[in-house]
Design a protein around this nucleic acid. Sequence first.
DNA 1: AAGTGGTCTAGACCACCAT
DNA 2: TGGTGGTCTAGACCACTTA
Lengths: 261, 261
Amino acid sequence: MEHSAAEPDLRRLPAGGAGPLYRQVRRELQRVIEGGRYAPGDTLPNEGAIARTLGVSIGTLRRAVDELVHGHVLVRQQGRGTFVALHSIDRFLFQFFHVEPRAPCAPELASAREYPTVECVAFGRGKADESDAAALQIRLGDPVLQIDNRLSLAGRPVVHDRLVLSALTFRGLTERRFVERPGTVYALFQTDYGITVLRARERARATSASRNTARVLGVAVGLPVLEVHRVALTFGERPVEYRVSTIDTTIHDYVSLLSRS
Amino acid sequence: MEHSAAEPDLRRLPAGGAGPLYRQVRRELQRVIEGGRYAPGDTLPNEGAIARTLGVSIGTLRRAVDELVHGHVLVRQQGRGTFVALHSIDRFLFQFFHVEPRAPCAPELASAREYPTVECVAFGRGKADESDAAALQIRLGDPVLQIDNRLSLAGRPVVHDRLVLSALTFRGLTERRFVERPGTVYALFQTDYGITVLRARERARATSASRNTARVLGVAVGLPVLEVHRVALTFGERPVEYRVSTIDTTIHDYVSLLSRS
DNA sequence: AAGTGGTCTAGACCACCAT
DNA sequence: TGGTGGTCTAGACCACTTA
């Protein structure tokens, strides 16, 4: 995907900015990253150079970068440089995939986690219903893509994912392109559409397996299952994906994000 | 609860400490807080004074305090001082109570949240079974307190909590003292036992309402309900409480902690 | 050896709170 | 008015990576 036209480079900060200087610096960095001047995987100029360009001290620049690193927008590597974050499998596992084999709720550290096998079981187009529209902040009836995946761990189907995407945002996304993607879905968003998923909101509830879910997961209709509703967000809190995950928690758990360490 | 004997005050850091200086400073601050020299609610000396005492620069001290604020150990208030964190109702709601009325998974900010009404429906003593022992890191058969609570929102029973506590840690905790506590359970831990809950690990799964839960919540036996297992941790990752929450998600959701903002 | 980020310092000044 | 934390600066030195 190409970027419109202007890919604004870093600019010296204006004089009367609002709020603390390090926030203005952070906004300026975010601006050039969103604008595509530095794409995911790119190396930023070194800290001294950025600070000089923006006209701030290195300490202030570092404070802004700290925040962006914390928000998964940037990644620092000592001795190598600062990079725009990429959607690796590790990141997906760590930040967005919360299903693990059943284990006692003990204070030990999490065991080695496994990346799920993904199969696309349906790929269709439709119109946004009320929850789609609310979640994606689009209009009722706007065209959407509806994608159903089966996720398996150790060969056992565990999660039935229903993804809803705005067809206007993901123009030209076909089943073939979707199925043949090399990495995770969020890596596809990033490489093919320039959209970086930064974080997500999730709400969970218990329900009974529907006929469709029962078929996808190979369980009995009516089995108590966990239903997780997720909205994935990019810059500016813009919703990008609405996903309903139905999880067979017979021998797996949904692990809530740890609080601050 | 009294503290053993020594309540070590802040000390100048030794010369050959391990790791970055700001981590050593953080450990030293944590040590005097755990030791009871500064109790929850107390005001710490001002930053200049602490830095001078420890023999580090103010910037280094501030970095250590930043981390402790982030971990909910300290609270800063500009113009007033730095305080050892207290377990307020707000903190409980924000950090440990994740149930909300059903709502679309939309990117708006969370609505005003409500503190649940708590009733104690059973208070007993028993011996640790295997999951209790694993969660609390005690021995099988060690004495435990078993407490059952009903939590209601807007007058409707929503959560059945089963708390398991080590009777050795919470010596002298009686039903009466428990029921008559003024604030939250974690505030009781803090004021009566000097134990501050810093964070928790949670695992969720769907299951069917047991007879007991059905009775407590007033729902049908077999209704799909959400079961959340939590281990609450204090300093040094020490487990303090094992809690199984069974949630009626008919008109409520379990809201996962937001990712980094 | 040269370049990067990571740590630490010392001090100036600002914003907020109490009195 | 005086004390607190919050911001910002300028520079020294360390640790790590790459070539």
